[in-house]
Design a protein around this nucleic acid. Structure first.
Lengths: 119, 119, 119, 119
DNA sequence: GTGGTCTAGACCACG
DNA sequence: GTGGTCTAGACCACC
């Protein structure tokens, strides 16, 4: 479980953790129905207050990336069920950025070229 | 001066104002060396405490979008001086979003198509 | 934490505090990632309004000398990252002073002698 | 009379004018007992409020760089009488900068080299 | 009139 | 406990 917390990041810690787990689930590093680390173990692992981990998991569950079973633990949800929503979110952010690019007088071609060269 | 404040928005008020003015300056709606509304007048206009407006302006000035002259007012800076930096910032955000798109298994072609259709 | 505020000084209080902390960080009196006094405690310590301390810290952070973590506190940044920029600033001021010395018909040798004798 | 006012400069306008005149007198561009431009003419010349020019001259006179004769105008004072005071001021600023250089871990040799290369 | 600083006191999210 | 935002109201220097 490789999670790095950036304390200089302005976003709250619980959000960073939640997002990182989200990525791990989306990319398949954590398979469907696979168990997530317990609140306590992850808290120790990251040297973070358990309350914060709890909040991260609550956030993750609320977004639909995992589900909890009383007395057994927390498990990754099926990606296919969450994907569409995330893509919608993504394109909203993408839209916003495209608007910003217009303000900066950047042409579509420049952006397309940039994408092509990326990675 | 059409600025709308969204109190449901989680971002602080001063940031919303600062960003809105930033756009107005970048897109040329407020020309170089043109005067911005005074702290007090804008405060009354938006029904916001003058201190908050001041903070918004401080933020804007710190980013290089305007300069202030004591006893005279505040004026828009030359966009050309700020542009390069803003573009750099833009591509950093763009990069981040492209990485996210990979996680969501979106192909470059989809993004390019999306851009082409945009607006 | 020895900070003295000079109320006769024309510079604003927040600037005096910011600069003093800046020195403490630059000279290593406050090590990297070491915690700075909290807004409230310093406010009480100096008998200054917390808002003013906050502003001092904002200023310090904006200059890159520290970073803040919500709910945790504020910490000194790595000097090595700020050094180059500060040196550049220094030489700009130095340049300006050298020009002034020319106006006063002071010779380079006099200045060099003065430096040699200094401290 | 070539005086440029920088409105982006944070220093008050009257101070900029006063300082500029001061330089002109110190470097001999305005000779001893030579007349300075009248408040009104300079105000028109610089498109500045006469009150501000007045304040600049008051400042200049108070520093000893000029004297006024009722009904005749204002005249440059003898440089020799002001020089010593200005040099003292200069070295105070110079001292302050040298202290700062120590904080930045700059060696005396670096500063001396810098002076030698200057201009 | 303008920008800028400061105080006092309140509220919120985060850990 | 911490940092951060906001309001209300005051004072100052500058133009």
């Amino acid at each position: 479980m490789i999670i790095k917390i950036d304390f200089r990041d302005k976003r709250p810690i619980y959000e960073q953790i939640s997002e990182k787990l989200q990525e791990l689930i989306l990319c398949g590093a954590i398979g469907v129905d696979e168990s997530l680390p317990s609140v306590r173990s992850l808290a120790i692992d990251l040297s973070i207050n358990p309350n914060t981990i709890q909040k991260a998991y609550d956030n993750l569950e609320q977004k639909g990336f995992c589900y909890s079973v009383a007395g057994r633990g927390r498990f990754a949800a099926a990606v296919s069920e969450v994907m569409p929503g995330k893509r919608k979110e993504f394109f909203e952010k993408f839209d916003q950025l495209l608007n910003e690019s217009a303000t900066l007088q950047l042409k579509k071609e420049e952006l397309i070229d940039y994408i092509k060269k990326h990675n």
